[in-house]
């Protein structure tokens, strides 16, 4: 059964639309994929992301239509051996399609520049400073005055495979400007909390720090694998050796009152252990 030319064309159109729909659906999925921002800085980034995403979608759809549509519309028919018109170019058109992307990228740069400045901005005196120490392969968090949360070192089983990690829990108050000071004494790590839409490398020999203000608590976060409920995920984002993948942590964002209660508890614990045994180092168990 041979199909007529118009049926074939219709089938091709249908196929084209199917491919297009799948492409757009995949792109849409990637749009909604960004974690909901949990910080002031992250909200601006998320808005910029959406703006860029819409521009990108329009360009993507337009250019894909040209990429697939032109060769389909102008395909060579069987037996047609005539040459098409030999056009070598068009200066006006070429100028226009140089100018349009130029305007778009300059606009994007202006928007992006504001966000870069915002996320890199620092208050002279933050509400709270937390020192983040990355090492092969665990995170620990130092709140000052001997209050620390120390992650358990990643371990392997007898076959050489990694055991499931126990992410240490970084507790921070909502609504306060927090400065994370990053420190590493071995290799480069990267301190990454997806919900902040930000990360910064932890570079040995370099004082890296950034400030964020969380805008919501983490109480509604569901559990995800080794991450327990009620906390945002955190991970090392820079390859740092064999157990890089196990170098996880989680971030519990609580109200300032809850935070103060928690900190007082940790302080008492720290004082007890400091007073109890002078020889003991500052290592405390991970707060779970």
């Amino acid at each position: 059964m041979r199909r007529t030319a118009s049926e074939r064309l219709a089938a091709r159109r249908k196929f084209g639309m199917l491919v297009g729909t799948i492409g757009v659906a995949l792109l849409l999925a990637s749009c909604t994929g960004q974690p909901e921002p949990a910080t002031q800085q992250g909200e601006g980034m998320h808005r910029l992301y959406l703006v860029m995403w819409i521009i990108a979608l329009v360009l993507f759809v337009g250019v894909e239509i040209a990429i697939w549509g032109f060769p389909l519309a102008f395909r060579r028919r069987r037996g047609d051996n005539e040459l098409p018109a030999q056009s070598h170019g068009n200066n006006v058109l070429e100028f226009v399609w140089t100018a349009i992307p130029a305007v778009i990228v300059i606009t994007l740069f202006a928007l992006s520049w504001q966000q870069i400045n915002k996320v890199q901005a620092k208050e002279p005196v933050p509400d709270r400073e937390i020192k983040v120490i990355g090492k092969q392969w665990a995170w620990s968090f130092d709140y000052g005055n001997g209050v620390t949360v120390v992650g358990e070192n990643a371990t392997k089983n007898s076959a050489g495979f990694a055991n499931e990690p126990v992410p240490p829990r970084l507790v921070v108050p909502v609504g306060q400007n927090i400065e994370f000071k990053l420190q590493s004494d071995d290799v480069i790590h990267s301190f990454y909390i997806p919900a902040t839409l930000y990360k910064l490398d932890v570079v040995p020999g370099q004082q890296n720090a950034f400030q964020v203000t969380f805008t919501k608590t983490s109480e509604d976060q569901p559990a995800h694998g080794v991450y327990s409920a009620g906390a945002f995920q955190g991970a090392c984002a820079e390859l740092c050796g064999t157990q890089h993948a196990q170098m996880l942590f989680e971030v519990e964002v609580v109200s300032p009152e809850q935070f103060d209660t928690w900190l007082r508890g940790k302080q008492a614990e720290a004082n007890r252990s400091a007073g109890g045994a002078a020889t003991a180092t500052t290592t405390t168990a991970a707060s779970q």
């Binding site: 860029m52 870069i116 996320v119």
Partner: peptide, 14 residues
């Protein structure tokens, strides 16, 4: 372009 913009890169880098 998302990566090159700098700001979006902070979230998706690495």
């Amino acid at each position: 372009v998302f990566l090159g913009s700098g700001s979006i890169d902070f979230s998706v880098h690495d």
